[in-house]
Design a protein around this nucleic acid. Structure first.
Length: 265
DNA sequence: ATGGTGGCACCGCCA
């Protein structure tokens, strides 16, 4: 038996957060780190520092907004970016390591419930479920991580009543994500922390001392298919990692799985 | 707080 360790982090600019990420990688040595909101086009992605740290990195980005990166101790056997029918923004990566599938997503935020962007978000989840139906099965060992831009229960936001109409807590967004969950995923963090409130991965920049005041959200997730979720050993949110010189508005979410073998062996 | 901050673009947009 060996441990497979995976983490997710919305960097809000991978160039601004580069030192923080490298420091975290050196300390935690995960097998895979999935990053969202890299905010850099591929030609300017800082790949060398990750390679120098002993990691392989696959990136799909653009100027200014969105963008995803998948950092791993061994290169994936298979890499796929985006939906089969094409994407207008880089938000999705799938990587295969042996029989293990890692999916990294930066789900559209949605801006406002009455906007076309919110409809795009709901559609995004529907397209993602379609992709799963067409190219995967729940019997596979799949770990799906990233910024889902949805808090799934009242425990996952600081003010469930006041935030009901927010695009990241809206019933329609929760229902759209629920459709994906029902395909065959379990929330690995919740499996290990049932009914535990105040476990947040994101805090609004615009609030004052939001971490100290508990004004947060849990929208960054690690979900897994059943046979993988059963083998999860622990999961946690590294709140302390946010206390850096230039913190992102998100922090690292981490999980460990006990597997018979991992690609990093 | 019908406000607040931060990152990147370009002369606002996105979160």
């Amino acid at each position: 038996m060996t441990t497979f360790k995976i983490a997710t982090f919305n960097a809000n600019s991978i160039r601004t957060r580069l030192a923080q990420i490298l420091e975290w990688l050196a300390r935690e040595r995960p097998d895979v780190l999935c990053v969202q909101e890299t905010k850099v086009q591929d030609s300017e992605f800082p790949a060398q520092p990750f390679q120098d740290a002993g990691y392989s990195v696959a990136f799909n980005g653009q100027k200014a907004y969105a963008g995803v990166a998948l950092i791993s101790r061994t290169p994936p056997d298979i890499l796929a970016a985006g939906f089969p029918n094409g994407d207008d923004q880089p938000r999705l990566q799938r990587a295969t390591f042996g029989d293990l599938v890692v999916i990294n997503t930066y789900v559209p935020q949605g801006r406002a419930p009455d906007s076309e962007h919110f409809q795009y978000k709901l559609q995004w989840f529907a397209r993602f479920r379609q992709l799963l139906e067409q190219q995967h099965t729940p019997e596979q060992s799949i770990v799906w991580v990233g910024d889902f831009n949805v808090a799934t229960s009242d425990l996952d936001v600081y003010n469930p009543t006041g935030l009901r109409d927010h695009v990241d807590f809206h019933p329609a967004a929760q229902a759209a994500l629920e459709q994906v969950r029902q395909w065959g995923f379990e929330d690995v963090f919740r499996r290990h922390h049932p009914d535990e409130p105040g476990q947040f991965s994101y805090w609004d920049y615009r609030a004052h001392n939001p971490v100290e005041r508990g004004v947060g959200w849990r929208i960054d997730h690690i979900w897994a298919t059943p046979n993988l979720a059963e083998r999860s050993a622990r999961a946690w949110i590294d709140v302390a990692a946010r206390h850096a010189a230039r913190p992102s508005d998100h922090t690292f979410v981490v999980a460990e799985f006990a597997l018979s073998h991992t690609p990093s062996d």
